[in-house]
Amino acid sequence: MADIDLAEYGADFTANPHPYYAKMRAAGPVHRVRTADGSRVWLVVGYDAARAALADPRLAKSPSVVGMTMLDERVIGPNLLVLDPPDHTRLRGLVAGQFTGRRVESLRPRIERLTRELADTMAPAGRADLVDSFAFPLPVIVICELLGIPAADRDTFRAWSNEIVAPTGAGPEAAAIEGLAAYLDALIEDKRAAGPCDDLLSDLITARAEDGDRLSLAELRALAYLLLIAGHETTVNLVTNAVRALLTHPGQLAAVRADHGLLDAVVEETLRWEGPVENATFRFTREPVRIGETLIPAYEPVLVSLASGDRDPGRYPDADRFDLHRDARGHLAFGHGVHYCLGAPLARLEARIALRTLLERFPGLELDADAGALEWLPGLLMRGVRRLPVRW
Score class of each variant (00 low, 15 high):
A175N: 08
L365I: 13
E117W: 00
L227V: 06
D153R: 05
T285V: 10
V104T: 05
G169V: 05
W42V: 05
L359S: 07
L355S: 06
R158Q: 12
P86Y: 02
A254D: 15
R90D: 02
G384D: 04
N162V: 10
I164G: 00
A159Y: 09
R221Y: 08
F362A: 11
G330F: 14
A186N: 14
G372T: 06
R158F: 02
P63E: 13
A224H: 03
T235E: 03
L271Y: 04
D72V: 14
N237V: 02
G379M: 10
V30A: 12
H331Q: 15
M24C: 14
A344H: 10
D185M: 12
L381D: 03
P85A: 09
E278W: 12
G275V: 09
V104G: 02
K23Q: 15
R127M: 08
A371G: 04
R257C: 04
L246E: 00
L94S: 08
L349F: 10
A328M: 09
R58Q: 15
L91H: 00
V289F: 05
Y340N: 05
E112Y: 12
F157P: 00
R92C: 03
F322P: 05
D259S: 11
L342N: 04
R315V: 06
I141C: 10
D323N: 15
S64W: 11
L204D: 00
H325Q: 14
G337R: 14
P137A: 07
Y183I: 13
D199I: 07
I188Q: 06
T240C: 11
A181P: 01
P17T: 07
D198Q: 14
D323C: 12
P167K: 05
E274F: 12
T14M: 10
D72K: 09
T14G: 02
R25F: 13
D320W: 11
L295P: 08
L380C: 08
P250C: 10
F282D: 04
L226M: 12
R356L: 08
R272M: 10
H260S: 13
R386E: 11
A50G: 05
K23E: 15
P17W: 03
A55K: 14
E105Y: 11
A174F: 00
G231V: 01
E73V: 14
L271D: 04
A96C: 08
R244N: 10
S216Q: 03
E350W: 02
L180I: 14
D48W: 06
P124E: 01
V256T: 04
L349R: 04
L262P: 02
L388V: 04
C341M: 13
P378W: 09
P109G: 13
E219Q: 13
L200Q: 03
R391D: 03
